[in-house]
Amino acid sequence: MSILIDENTQLLVQGITGREGLFHTSQMLAYGTRVVAGVTPGKGGEWVLDGKVPVFDTVQIAVEATGANCSVSFVPARFAADAMLEASAASVELIVCITEGIPVQDMMRVRRALDLQGTRLVGPNCPGLLSPGASKVGIIPGHIAKRGKIGIVSRSGTLTYEVLYSLTASGMGTSTCVGIGGDPVNGTSFVDVLSMFEEDPHTDKVVLIGEIGGTDEEKAAAFISDQMTKPVVGFIAGRTAPPGKRMGHAGAIVEGGTGLASEKIRVLQSAGVRIADHPEQIPELLQ
């Protein structure tokens, strides 16, 4: 059916009483996600969204009371590292961090601590996960996708929506869409998600949306060439970005010759990935 999240996902929202947290919790509930708890320190005992979701002071108490197994975090950047460590310490299996603008040194320490604890992190600075018809964890607009057999993994946010939208317009459906985020240090990588799609009996083909900076696409190319049997179609944003310039995402910086779009496209193509010239060409390449 899907990877990472499904109908059985019991979700906890960190930062549920904030503007973004509250709005997107209502969107997730409307989509059918089982949101079982929220956490905002100092607001334990309250209920939000017409009494639908109980709020707790700590993740530990929320997990004990509700059995939540997944957390999505809208906690502001300066408190976000702490929020991830808290969820990990409370043995939450999957953390999805939407927050953008987290200092990179915080992320290096968090990632190391989460690895020791064995917690899976998606993000930060990501739109989250969507398994159409089953569950939505994050901020991807639910109505632009329908259930199907194409797996999507992306470092981008709105560019991912663009691709989902054009797939739906071409009558194609999605098993799970995973936004891994655009930061230089994040949790789940392209390779992690590709291997899950390879194992998932309900995913037939995969779309990979990358961008300039880092070497995650190069690692994905090696994995695809060595271990994947399912066809992969890709798009890499930033072909026209000048080197050395920061293009919004902390991650989208081209550093001295590495991380160039042209190089990523070359290695992906030689791994058998068909690369689209523009995002709206992806459905055509999947046919």
């Binding site: 992306s154 946010g157 560019l159 655009g182 949306i209 944003a237 930033g238 293009m247 989208a252 523009h278």
Partner: peptide
């Protein structure tokens, strides 16, 4: 969005 902005370029 940064990714979409780059793709647009």
């Amino acid at each position: 969005g940064a990714g979409l902005a780059m793709a647009t370029m």
